[in-house]
Amino acid sequence: MLEISDLSARVAGKEILTGVNLKVNAGEVHAIMGPNGSGKSTLAQVLAGREDYEVTRGSVTFEGRDLLSMRAEERARAGLFLGFQYPVEIPGVNNVYLLKAALNAKRKAAGEPEVDAYEFLALIRQKMKFMQMSEAFLSRGVNEGFSGGEKKRNEVLQMLVLEPKLAILDETDSGLDIDALKVVSTGVNSLRGPQRAVVLVTHYQRLLDYVIPDQVHVLSGGRIVKSGDKTLAQELERRGYDWVMESRVA
C-alpha cells in the first residue's frame, strides 16, 4: 500500500529525514517510535503533503501512485488520513460542517453523490457514541475550546467517518488518560481490516498494549535504524532508545 524509499526531506534548510525506507502492506499496523527530534512528526507531515517540508531525495508510492506529486487534498481524497499531534482550532466553523465537507470532497473525488444530511447525522451520532463523545460536540466549532483529550478523540472520530485506507496517527496517544486511551484504541482497532493500514507514530509503548502492531520501527537521526515485531516496543520500553543507537554504531 505504502512504499517509502530513501526519503529525505528538510524544513527551513535543515535536513530532518535522511533516507527513510519503509513498506506498509494492506492489513498491517506499523508503529514508528523514536526519541524526540528523530523526525517522526516530519515523516507524518511529509506523507500528508505539508508544503513547508521540502523533499530532497527519494520516492513514495501509495497504492501504486506517486504520492509526492499529489497535492495534500488529493492525498486525503485518495484515502490518506493524518491524525494530527496538535489539532488546530478553527473558530466559528462547526465540527459537523467540516466533517461533512471532508466526506463530500472524498465522495466527489470517487464519483459518488453527496451524503444525505439526515444519514450523515445518523452516522456521526453513531460514531460519536462509539467514541463516547457528548452531543454538545455537534454544535461546537472545530476543536474550539476542546481539551487535549477531546481533540484527540475528535481526530479519531474524523478518521472513523472518513474511513481512510491509510491512517497515520501522530502521537494520538499523548496527553490521554487511561480511559481516553482505551477509547481511542478501540476506535483505531475498529478500523483495522484487510484493506486498510495504520501507521502509529508514538513515543510510548503503552498505546501498543491496546493496538497491537505487526511491525515496530525505530526512527533515529532521520532514518529507520531498527525494525522488529511488537517485542521490540517492549524492549524499548525497558531499555530506552540508547541501546538501539549504540548497537547501530557497533
Binding site: 505539508r50 495534500a72 486525503a76 481524497r77 478553527i90 467540516l98 470532497a105
Partner: peptide
Amino acid sequence: FYCLQRGISA
C-alpha cells in the same frame, strides 16, 4: 493545512 488534509480544497 488541516482542512486540506481532510480533502477540502484550498
